[in-house]
């Protein structure tokens, strides 16, 4: 009984036994710092500065900046398991065409190189059109563009079976326009490598 009491007392002193959650906001790959809101027990604690952290047992504690040393000690091995960032490549097309603009050729080569360099990856090829013309035709055109790009990737050593195709027509513009507008930046295919 006395032992149990001692353990309980030790726990209280150390504060180590109560379940708790620690959240630390850290910079992104590009060095930018975002924002999170930690919610618990009806309270909310925003974190908005680099390495700002809060601990929660019932409510979030006032934020403190965690030292880089402490971050590395607790999270170092976790962070080492982070997959590399996804990468997106854009190819542009003349009106009605499934043949990319000559200026988009380098992006195609870069995409193929990025895909072959990664040991394991998922590749999505997403075709788009501008809003000029018939929606059904645009849907078809966007898919045909995606298929054309898949063949070009295949010619650069990327197996077609590993590439997921989709065509979004004019529904997913890079630059929103009124219906019926020929906008060069929307006539595109995105190769997303992750």
């Amino acid at each position: 009984m006395r032992t149990l009491f001692s353990i309980l007392l030790l726990c209280l002193v150390l504060g180590a036994c109560a379940p708790k959650t620690t959240v630390v906001l850290v910079p992104d790959d590009d060095g930018g710092v975002g924002r999170v809101v930690v919610k618990a027990g009806g309270a909310e604690q925003p974190l908005a500065a680099a390495n700002e952290s809060t601990q929660v047992t019932d409510k979030p504690a006032p934020p403190k900046v965690m030292s880089q040393q402490e971050i590395d000690r607790i999270f170092g091995s976790t962070v080492a398991a982070m997959p590399e960032p996804p990468k997106s490549f854009l190819l542009y097309f003349p009106t009605g065409s499934t043949e990319p603009e000559p200026a988009s050729r380098p992006a195609l080569d870069e995409a193929a190189a990025d895909i072959t360099r990664r040991a394991v990856s998922n590749v999505s090829v997403i075709g788009h059109s501008d809003s000029a013309g018939d929606p059904a035709a645009n849907q078809k055109l966007s898919m045909a563009r995606a298929e054309a790009v898949r063949r070009m990737l295949e010619a650069r050593g990327v197996p077609a079976s590993g590439v997921a195709l989709s065509g979004h027509g004019a529904n997913d513009p890079l630059v929103p326009t009124a219906p019926g507008v020929a906008e060069a930046r929307n006539r595109r295919v995105e190769i997303l490598v992750r």
């Binding site: 379940p19 708790k20 959650t21 959240v23 630390v24 906001l25 850290v26 910079p27 992104d28 790959d29 710092v33 975002g34 924002r35 999170v36 809101v37 930690v38 919610k39 618990a40 974190l47 929660v56 047992t57 019932d58 979030p60």
Partner: peptide, 11 residues
């Protein structure tokens, strides 16, 4: 203990 809401970031 907690729910974290994200506004585009790393934590």
């Amino acid at each position: 203990q907690a729910a974290v809401g994200v506004r585009g970031t790393r934590f």
